[in-house]
């Protein structure tokens, strides 16, 4: 087994064991943190399929998280206020809508975005995501930019998503499936073409592959997976707002992939974990420094609001000096 797969296994084992232990020992907060981490990791894994393996730097991936979350929120909203049938709380229908809407959105926008390259691709993916953002902002009926409270979670057979352990379990199993799926795809014939097109598109085209179609297919698969993650995220937060699909949220997903190590299966998970935990640690540390600083300066300073500053510096250092992200750092010495 390679060192990278070993790291991935260790990370996944810790992620499976620690959160429930925290929960049972009275630290429910950490289970919540782990659930959020796991759901975002699914989105990061899906982004890695196109960003890492496909070389398509999408700056609009949070749009799918939003679409997926609203696919839960909007039917639940109509169920509560308009009394439409109970099917509107059925989780399988929610997930079906989330995946279908995301796939269609990816197909339409991807067909256009993939005609561009480089910086233009980055900008146009971001533009489409912002389009969805402003669309949701403008629909007052669903709360506009105030967002929407989801009054009832998706109903699934055997599971009760109101139970945080069940929700975490579902997210965890989904993450494992997502990782296996991406692993299968990138090692298939399809995956070979996808990676070849990233390395040398012209060569791949002259070999006889219509790389546009291969890229578009990967783009749609990736979008559908992220939409699924969005449905889970809606169930987790029970409050959805356009914020979720803001360009900053897309940037965070990109960071998770790059921080953890693109073109590795475990990298995005490691990146999501590092991202979420670091955010938590920095906010805590800075908050803890507030009171000594208060007595020193005599004025109140809300230091924890500035956690982005050390965080950003750390990210810059990692991107500049660690090739292949955290996975590259930990798995050094092998190809």
């Amino acid at each position: 087994m390679t060192r990278k797969s070993l790291i991935t296994l260790v990370v996944m084992a810790l992620l499976a064991i620690l959160p429930p232990v925290f929960y049972w020992t009275g630290n429910a907060f950490y289970l919540d943190l782990a659930t959020r981490l796991t759901i975002l990791a699914i989105a990061a894994v899906s982004l890695n399929l196109i960003l890492g393996y496909g070389g398509m730097i999408s700056f609009g991936h949070a749009a799918y998280l939003g679409l997926g979350a609203y696919a839960v929120g909007i039917p639940a909203f109509h169920w509560l206020y308009d009394g439409i049938g109970d099917w509107a709380t059925n989780g399988l229908i929610h997930i079906g809508i989330a995946v279908a809407v995301s796939a269609i959105f990816a197909l339409i926008t991807g067909a256009i975005c993939l005609r561009t390259r480089g910086v233009y691709f980055i900008m146009i993916t971001m533009a489409f995501a912002q389009m969805v953002y402003y669309l949701i902002v403008s629909i007052e009926h669903y709360g506009g930019d105030d967002g929407l409270v989801i009054d009832t979670r998706s109903e699934l057979p055997l599971l009760n998503l109101d139970n945080p352990l069940h929700l975490f379990g579902l997210a965890y199993v989904s993450l494992v499936v997502a990782m296996l799926l991406v692993n299968m795809i990138v090692n298939s014939r399809f995956g070979m073409v996808l990676q070849a097109a990233k390395g040398n598109n012209e060569r791949t085209v002259t070999l006889g592959f219509n790389t546009y179609l291969y890229r578009l297919t990967a783009y749609v698969i990736s979008g559908a997976m992220a939409g699924y993650a969005g449905a889970l995220l809606g169930n987790f937060t029970t409050f959805i707002s356009p914020e979720m699909m803001d360009w900053r949220a897309s940037g965070e997903l990109m960071f998770m992939v790059i921080l953890g190590g693109a073109t590795t299966i475990g990298g995005p998970v490691l990146g999501a974990a590092a991202f979420i935990l670091l955010e938590e640690v920095l906010v805590d540390t800075l908050g803890w420094l507030e009171s000594p600083l208060h007595s020193l300066l005599g004025t109140e300073v809300e230091l924890s609001n500035f956690w982005h500053l050390p965080f950003g510096l750390l990210l810059i250092v990692i991107v500049l000096y660690v090739r292949g992200g955290l996975m590259g750092l930990l798995g050094r010495g092998e190809d």
């Binding site: 299968m184 795809i185 090692n187 298939s188 014939r189 399809f190 995956g191 070979m192 073409v193 592959f209 291969y214 297919t217």
Partner: peptide, 9 residues
């Protein structure tokens, strides 16, 4: 090469 399952290698 729209074959997604079997490992190519």
């Amino acid at each position: 090469s729209f074959r997604f399952v079997a490992p190519a290698r």
